[in-house]
C-alpha cells in the first residue's frame, strides 16, 4: 500500500518532466487528424483534410463547411492524449478555420486556440494561422501563455503533383517570461496522385533542436469512399496505418501508430460536412 502511494507521489512529481522529455517529433502536434497519423504524420502536402489548419493552413479545403473532432492517445496513456475540435467555413475569397487543441491532464496541460485563414490565387495557395498557446503545470507551479504565428504555402505544380511548405512559430515565441521556447519547425513536401485512387506524400521536417525527419504516407481508395492508409517517419522511427470512410455528409478516420520502443498509439477523428 505504502509502495503504491509512494509510486503515485513519484509518478505525479516526475510526470511533467517526463512529458517535457518526449521529443517533439513524437508529440506530432503540428500534424493532427487520424488521416495524418495513418500516413506517417504527414500533412504539409496532404490536400483535402480540414486538419490542414494545424499542418499547413494553405491546404484548408475551399468548398465545404465542416466540423471535426479528433483524439490521439499516446501509447495508450490517458494522461497524454491529444484532443482537438475544429470548424472550417468558406468565406470571401478563402477559407476560415477555428480550432481548439488540448493535451495533457491536471498536472500538465497544454491548450491551443487557433484561427487560420487561407486564400488561393490560381494554383497557388497561402495560409496564415494565429495560435494562443497556454500551458498549465498543476500543483501550484503556475501557468503561462503566448502567441504563435504559422505560415503555409501550397502549389499545384501539375494536376497531380502538389508542393507544400510550412513555417511554424515564425515569431519565435516563448512561454511567459521564461526561456521555454516553443518548437520552431520548417517543413516541405510533395504530394502526388498516381491515379484517382492512389495518393502518396513525402516530406522533410526540421525542428531547430531535433534531427531532420523524413515522413511519408500512402493512401489507396480501395473501393469508392473506403480508404487504406500507411506511412512511416524517421527520427523517431515510427510507422502507422489506418482506414477511412467518407460519405457525403460525414467521414470517419481511424489510425494506429507504432513507435519503437514506446508502442502503439490509436487515433480517431470524425467530421460532419454541411
Amino acid at each position: 500500500m505504502i509502495q503504491r502511494i509512494l509510486f503515485k507521489i513519484f509518478f505525479s512529481l516526475s510526470l511533467p518532466f517526463l512529458l517535457l522529455m518526449i521529443p517533439q517529433g513524437l508529440s506530432a502536434q503540428s500534424s493532427m487528424g487520424a488521416r495524418s497519423v495513418s500516413m506517417g504524420l504527414t500533412g504539409v502536402a496532404l490536400p483535402g483534410t480540414p486538419w490542414s489548419a494545424f499542418s499547413n493552413s494553405a491546404l484548408l479545403p475551399a468548398h465545404n463547411r465542416n466540423v471535426s473532432f479528433y483524439g490521439f492517445r499516446y501509447v495508450g496513456i490517458a494522461e497524454i492524449t491529444d484532443m482537438a475540435a475544429l470548424f472550417t467555413l468558406p468565406v470571401f475569397h478563402g477559407t476560415l478555420a477555428g480550432a481548439v487543441h488540448k493535451y495533457g491532464f491536471n498536472l500538465y496541460q497544454e491548450s491551443r486556440f487557433l484561427t487560420a485563414y487561407k486564400f488561393a490565387s490560381g494554383r497557388f495557395h497561402t495560409g496564415i494561422s494565429l495560435s494562443y498557446y497556454h500551458v498549465n503545470i498543476g500543483g501550484n507551479y503556475g501557468s503561462a501563455g503566448t502567441l504563435g504565428v504559422d505560415l503555409g504555402f501550397a502549389t499545384e505544380l501539375t494536376d497531380r503533383l502538389w508542393f507544400g511548405s510550412r513555417l511554424t512559430n515564425l515569431n519565435q515565441p516563448s512561454y511567459g517570461s521564461s526561456d521555454e521556447m516553443l518548437p520552431r519547425e520548417v517543413a516541405a513536401g510533395l504530394g502526388y496522385y498516381f491515379s484517382e485512387t492512389l495518393f502518396m506524400t513525402a516530406e522533410l521536417v526540421k525542428d531547430v533542436l531535433f534531427p531532420l525527419s523524413f515522413r511519408t504516407g500512402l493512401e489507396l481508395e480501395l473501393v469508392p469512399s473506403f480508404f487504406l492508409r500507411a506511412g512511416f517517419t524517421t527520427e523517431p522511427d515510427t510507422f502507422s496505418a489506418g482506414i477511412g470512410f467518407t460519405q457525403e455528409r460525414w467521414l470517419i478516420n481511424i489510425g494506429m501508430q507504432q513507435h519503437n520502443p514506446l508502442g502503439l498509439s490509436p487515433a480517431l477523428d470524425m467530421g460532419i460536412l454541411f
Binding site: 498516381f194 502518396m200 489507396l220 500507411a230
Partner: peptide
C-alpha cells in the same frame, strides 16, 4: 500489399 500506380510506379508495403 503491392500497388502498381500509373504506368511507371510500383509500391510495396
Amino acid at each position: 500489399a503491392g500497388f502498381s500506380a500509373g504506368n511507371s510506379t510500383d509500391l510495396i508495403l
